[in-house]
Amino acid sequence: MTPAGHLVHGMGQALEAPTWPAITIGEATAVLARFPAAGPPTGLHWHSPRPFSAAALVRTGTGTVLLKRHHHMLRSIAGLAEEHAFIAHLAAAGLSVPKVLATADGATAIAIDAWRYEAHRQAPGADLYRDRLSWTPFFSHAQAHAAGVALARLHLAAAGVAAPARRAQPLVASLTILPARDPLAAAEAYVAARPALAAFLTTRPWRAQLAALFATLGDGLPAVLADQPPLWTHNDWHPSNLLWTDDGSVRTVIDFGLADRTCAVHDIATAIERSAIRWLDLPQGDDIADPAAALALLAGYASRVPLAAADIAAIVRLLPLVHLEFALSEIDYFTAVVADPAAAALTWDGYAIGHAVWFRSAAGQALLRRIGEAKP
């Protein structure tokens, strides 16, 4: 039974009824019995407001466990194994990440009926942003700086991951369109591989819309990205995916659901797009950017991993379109998994196209200029 009053993040600033039923204590007991290290549940004390899956913190005899449930059309056992392998590599390299629990036979995810489950030991650090929306800015520029430091540390820890890019699945921030010599052809291939997304776009002039964006915002971008070394990256670097220490530094990085093989500047641009632009305020006007937050994040990153002038230039070139492939993946979720055409339309018009168009505004151009003036 869904807890009374349990709501999740919607497409705007209002909370909404959840798509996926909340995890119950009976369900948690049955699932965690398959994970011996978890211990028997004694109660639930938080249900996540994030909308694309169900998650809860479960008190057990050995501590607190984060139990997550995904629909099988969103994540397969193999898809979760991709994430867990990346987390394991980062942990071995010394990064603080969630400890993924395993079954008696060593599996880190299980299938029960239409659901796929994973369980993590509760990670250390203060979850200061856990109930806030994904595009919430950092509380301070000092935290943006600390987040940049932590992102650089993650990239250092990710070096050496040899796994290929993830298999096609909804809600993964891949990078196949923008680096292609012909981005429009790559977008057509991306769409064709996802029948529900393709069906949704048939009534829209999407090729012309993307061609216009590539011409005005992406000219020369494939050549820029061709010079960037591939790297497994987080791809969802926003405040609520970071846990914090009392002194304001990042203690633990969480939520690797969007992770994939991209490149460092893609992750940095995504971090700026997620946290330095108040997208939810866009209906009230174009003045929504915080250039100082973007510069603080870059400065924090550069304090651990130097950024060359070419890297800064690549971030500037990439930022207006860095969201595009994930926006298409999100539409694939809304069409193939949950059949929500209204949310799909809002994602296309307001997110995929609307966010890119904002970068052609005076405020968007001003943000790009400020970032371009950052000192390597």
Rank of each mutant, 00 (worst) to 15 (best):
G94Y: 03
A78Q: 13
L7D: 08
P179F: 09
G257R: 01
A107H: 14
D281E: 09
A292F: 08
A33I: 03
A123W: 05
L319Q: 04
L318S: 09
D260P: 12
G350Y: 03
H72R: 15
A226C: 05
T42L: 10
G160D: 11
R130K: 11
G106P: 02
V250H: 00
M11V: 12
A142Y: 01
D246A: 15
I288Q: 00
E27C: 01
G5C: 02
G160P: 13
N235V: 03
L66D: 05
R75V: 03
P179K: 07
H120D: 08
P18A: 00
L154F: 13
R304P: 07
A165W: 12
F359S: 03
A56C: 09
S76Q: 14
E27Y: 05
A289K: 07
D182M: 11
D349G: 10
I277M: 04
V58R: 12
L243S: 01
A56N: 07
A352Q: 03
T24D: 07
R207D: 01
R121Y: 06
G94T: 06
A93D: 06
P41M: 01
A344L: 15
R69D: 10
A126Y: 09
A313E: 14
L151Q: 13
P98R: 00
I371M: 06
A152K: 02
D105M: 07
A119Y: 09
A114D: 15
P49H: 02
H238T: 04
S96C: 14
D287I: 04
A308C: 06
R167C: 14
T42P: 08
E27I: 01
R59D: 15
V322P: 08
T64N: 06
D182G: 11
F334L: 07
A88R: 14
I110N: 02
Q228N: 03
G300D: 03
A109E: 04
L156K: 10
R181Y: 09
S303R: 09
T270R: 04
A37W: 09
A192Q: 14
F326D: 06
H70L: 02
R370E: 15
Q365M: 08
L175I: 13
T42Q: 11
W348E: 05
A55S: 15
T19C: 05
W20H: 15
A147E: 09
A109Q: 10
L231Y: 01
I110M: 03
V191K: 05
A223P: 03
